[in-house]
């Protein structure tokens, strides 16, 4: 793939260090990332050649929140996103929303999101002192760990229980999301690295 020029990714000039670590700055980061996940979920899906299922970016936004904000703030951002979506704003994948998602077989995936953001953020924090050239790889590992340990197991078991499927049937049905997830995690890793390059303090001051 060709190199992407970096203009447009320059941060705002003159950021006082003072505000960077306050509770107010955290509040702004958490609510902005909750909105970012919402925007990712309602943007038109990306259709990649050779892929059966079009990719919505909902899980990408969740993973990015965890990677960029760390376990505590990342989890809060995802919880805020879920609360506002459950309250009836159409910000879940495909422009859905409201309490109806609680009855759908895909509930387990939503329940796993805050946990996945926490795990991805935690692993990323542990890897934050890694060499800069290895950052994308570390971020990809953190996101992949979260989706393999949390999103898919939880999503598949809830779907299996709600639809009365045997474990083997449920896993077969859930596996269709795996290829898209690999792409989304790779994207989240690349984008998180770009954010860390623009705002290095997000990687240094992690809570």
């Amino acid at each position: 793939m060709s190199a992407v020029p970096d203009e447009g990714t320059t941060p705002e000039p003159a950021r006082p260090v003072l505000a960077a670590r306050s509770a107010t700055a955290d509040l702004a980061l958490v609510s902005t990332f909750a909105a970012f996940i919402a925007v990712c979920a309602i943007l038109p899906a990306i259709v990649l050649p050779g892929m059966a299922v079009p990719i919505t970016l909902q899980t990408f936004g969740v993973m990015l929140a965890g990677l960029v904000l760390g376990p505590r703030r990342g989890t809060l951002a995802v919880l805020l996103y879920l609360a506002v979506g459950l309250a009836g704003l159409p910000i879940f994948a495909g422009g859905t929303g409201g309490l109806a998602v609680l009855g759908k077989p895909s509930l387990g995936y939503l329940l796993a999101f805050p946990l996945a953001a926490a795990l991805a953020g935690y692993v990323m924090t542990r890897l934050s002192s890694v060499r800069r050239s290895l950052l994308p790889l570390g971020a990809f590992a953190a996101a992949t760990l979260a989706s393999l340990l949390l999103i898919h197991p939880l999503g598949i078991s809830v779907m299996g229980a709600r639809l009365g499927l045997s474990p083997a049937e449920a896993i077969t049905a859930g596996a269709t999301f795996l290829p898209g997830d690999v792409i989304k995690n790779a994207l989240a890793a690349v984008v998180a690295t770009a954010v860390f390059r623009a705002f290095p303090d997000l990687l240094r001051a992690r809570r």
Partner: peptide, 26 residues
Amino acid sequence: RDPRATLAPAAVRAVARARSTGEALA
């Protein structure tokens, strides 16, 4: 067609927006 050219700047600008919101609140 390159997601890096669309998503990375969008995410960086979201963080910049959060930063200025935080400063305005403070």
